[in-house]
Amino acid sequence: MKIWTVANQKGGVGKTTTTVSLGGILAAQGKKVLLIDTDPHASLTYYFGIDSEDLEVSVYDIFIRGSNMASEEILQALCPSTVENLDILPATMAIATLDRSMGNRSGMGLILKKALAKISDYYDYAILDCPPVLGVLMVNALAASERILIPVQTEFLALKGLDRMMRTMTLMQSSHSKQYQYTIVPTMYDKRTKASLEAYKSLVESYKDKVWPGVIPVDTKFRDASLAQQVPVQFCPKSRGVYAYRSLLEHIGELERGNNE
């Protein structure tokens, strides 16, 4: 099972949209995909019409029970989506308490990684949607992942969030002796505005080949898909936004094939 984490220490940059778009495309290609919500706001959970208040089991239970949770119990915590091959591990507001209640506990940063290892035979991909705050949840998501996708809105305030994210990854790499593979994904790009053009130029100058050479454009179809509680590839398969995410997926595939050669 390949594990990707979608993360940035700034909200509103397109993390959930990126998660559901890539997950939907992979599922449409016949891959078994698990989307994991690690954000207390539960945007990914609500996207699929799952009411976090009604859940008996969620990602919170994995953190609380840790290694005591068997693979069958983890699988029972998953919610099927309306998309074939696509399941959700939902979040509840309770995970907002984890930093306070468990943040200093030894081994806390590897709970999610160990849990996913127990169900790795059931899925081809797991994609984690991260909160914008550095804490137990983000640390777990980064530690579990093989590739980090960093959506960055093409405007200058968002570039500051990227700076914080890069510092976090440097700290994580040092503490885990792990070199992260990451791709910066320019999002909400509007070629009509100088702000988008300048922000994209700054991204490429600062991070060079770590920036995906494409862009995710501003596309109102994403909002409509969310309202309909459908993944974009299902709701608007021919939209420019879906086309862009298909291109991103191809790019990631090329990177991974290059790393394996």
Rank of each mutant, 00 (worst) to 15 (best):
G12L: 09
E72H: 08
V218R: 15
V83L: 09
S120H: 11
S226P: 02
L142C: 11
N260I: 15
T187G: 10
A126T: 07
M108G: 02
L255V: 11
K194V: 13
G11D: 12
I95C: 12
S52F: 12
A144W: 06
C79I: 13
N260P: 00
V6C: 06
E205R: 08
Q153I: 04
P132F: 08
A199K: 06
V133H: 09
D61A: 05
N259V: 13
M169A: 01
E56W: 04
E155M: 12
V152R: 07
P40F: 07
S81W: 00
N140A: 00
M93C: 11
L116H: 01
K210C: 03
L159C: 14
S52K: 07
R240C: 04
K208C: 05
M69T: 14
E72G: 01
G107H: 14
I150C: 10
P151D: 13
E198I: 03
Y46W: 08
R105L: 08
C79Q: 06
Q29H: 06
S247G: 09
E73G: 06
N259H: 08
M102K: 11
I25G: 14
L162F: 07
C130S: 15
G258F: 11
R240Y: 06
P232R: 01
Q173M: 14
G23E: 08
K238G: 03
L35M: 15
Q153E: 15
G30S: 09
G161N: 04
Q179A: 11
S21C: 01
A91H: 00
A144R: 04
K31E: 12
V33S: 08
V59T: 10
L157P: 05
V185I: 15
Q76Y: 06
G253Y: 10
D121A: 10
